[in-house]
Structures are given as C-alpha cells and as structure tokens.
Design a protein around this nucleic acid. Structure first.
Length: 254
DNA sequence: CCAGACGTTGTT
DNA sequence: GTCTGG
DNA sequence: CCAGACGTTGTT
DNA sequence: GTCTGG
C-alpha cells in the first residue's frame, strides 16, 4: 500500500504555514525548492525512488530531499542497496521497533512526508482501476515516515539519505477501494492529524506515544475517485491532469 | 561457530 | 499461473 | 504494489 | 549492526 504518490510542493508550503513559520521562512523554503530544482510530482511511483521533500525530527524546520525507499545503514554494497530499496518503500507500523531495517529509525529518525494524495488500484474482473485518495478539504496529508543515511563502504563516502512510509490497518475506504485479492488485509499509510504532527517528530517521544499515533486515519475526512491509467504503457505520466476524475463503465459507485 | 538475512502488499 | 522489473 | 514477460534461431 | 538458522 502506498507506492504511488502526489507530492507537489504545495503540501509542504501549507505545512510551513500551519507551523506558523513567518513569511521570511516560507520565502526561504520556496527559494530552497528553486535552488534544488524540486520537481513537483503529480504522480510518481515509489519504485522510481524519487527524491521527495521530508521534514525530519532532527531538523523539523529544514526540509530535506530524500530518496523514497529506505536503505539501512548496515547495507554492505550497491547490490544490497538496490535489492532492499524496492522492499522498504513501506514499513509496517506494527513492527517498526522490531525489524532490523527500521528499528533504529523508529527510535530516533522519524519524519513527515507531506503528500497531496496517494494512488491505489481497485481490482474487478481481472482488471485494475486507479483511484486517487486525498483529504476532502484539500489539506496536505502528513504521512508518517522513517529515514536513514547510508554510505557505501566501498564507495566515495557520499551519504545517501532515504525514507520509508509507515503503514497501518486500512480503514473502511481502503477496504472498498484497494481490493487486491492477493493481499493479506487492508493497509493504508499512517496519516498524522495536525495536532499530533509535532509528537511524531519529537525526538524525546517514547515508544508508547509513537505507537499510539500509528492507526488508521478517519475515512470520513478523505475523498476518492477514479483517475486515468497511472502505470504501464498507457500511463498518463507526471502531468497535472493525472489527478482528474476519469469515469469507468465498470465502476458505478464513484 | 559462520553464513545469511534483514521487506512490503486487501482473502469480499 | 508465476516470476521479475520498476 | 502492478505490468509485463514467459522462447528460439546465425546478424540489420 | 544484530539476529536466526544450520
């Protein structure tokens, strides 16, 4: 769950405003985005390992560009990194304090990823239909993430910073939309409500507090609709119109 | 002890 | 049907 | 996770 | 780095 995202900078700018940063800081954030030539992602696959803006617990006022797909610090070489990075796009919230790949990050390397939306597929009669899920009020979704730094021991010493998206049990909306017959139970990304976002980024927060934040988001605050193809040869690509509603004959409930 | 893994995903 | 690549 | 391949042979 | 399996 949650392998396809919309990550325009507008979500991060809204975050900055929510945090009551003064105009100067917001301006600096925009300058910084220009400086690093941030590409707005209207729709991007995690498997492409795009660099997305994240706010870390270490520097919550200094957003960073990290690659999607967490590479644990103990990975020994490029081959190992390539292998694991496609398997750590998501982290099961239930086990982040146990899994070797995530536990150090769970304790002290948490982050928030402000997404405008995420995409999932509905399965029907052997076909798939992409859905876009976003907040009804168009506010950014603060997605719980973990981050890590990796330097190839056999490399130049360059540090590659990466992140993963924490998932939890899916709510009723996900149960309806994301019905892959092969999966083991509805999952969804952890969305942190506004009043809890500082807690997720609090380095001093203990395990119990963090775990209490890992739960399904209120489905009544989310909207969803079918969109054009986002994967494969027929994919629309990274264009603004991917978020537009597209009606499918077979789906009569949206 | 050494070698190898270390991860994710809707059963309506 | 099942595996690999992204 | 979904999309696409899944095979062989002497060349373009 | 740390744990599990053999």
């Amino acid at each position: 769950m949650c392998y396809n995202a919309e990550a325009q900078t507008k979500a991060s700018i809204k975050y900055a405003k929510h945090k009551s940063f003064d105009a100067n800081i917001i301006k600096q954030l925009q300058l910084k985005l220009d400086l690093i030539s941030y590409t707005p992602y209207y729709q991007v696959s995690g498997f492409a390992h795009p660099r997305i803006l994240v706010f870390t617990d270490r520097e919550p006022l200094e957003p960073k560009l990290f690659h999607w797909g967490l590479i644990p610090s103990w990975i020994k070489d490029e081959e190992g990194a390539k292998k694991i990075i496609n398997q750590t796009l998501n982290a099961r919230g239930e086990t982040i304090y146990e899994k070797p790949a995530f536990r150090t990050s769970a304790k002290s390397k948490r982050c928030l990823v402000y997404l405008d939306a995420f995409y999932e597929h509905h399965h029907l009669n052997g076909k798939t239909f992409p859905f876009r899920i976003a907040m009804k009020d168009d506010s950014p979704m603060a997605i719980a993430g973990l981050w890590e730094e990796w330097a190839n021991p056999k490399g130049s010493g360059e540090i590659i910073s990466t992140f993963t998206i924490v998932t939890t049990v899916g709510n009723s909306i996900m149960a309806k939309v994301h019905n892959n017959p092969k999966a083991e139970g509805p999952r969804m990304p952890v969305i942190i409500p506004k009043d809890k976002q500082d807690e997720w980024l609090d380095i001093k927060a203990d395990k119990e507090v963090i775990q209490s934040l890992i739960k399904p988001f209120d489905g009544s605050l989310l909207e969803y609709h079918t969109v054009g193809k986002i994967l494969g040869k027929a994919a629309i690509g990274n264009k603004p119109e991917v978020e537009n509603k597209v009606k499918y004959q077979e789906i009569d409930w949206v």
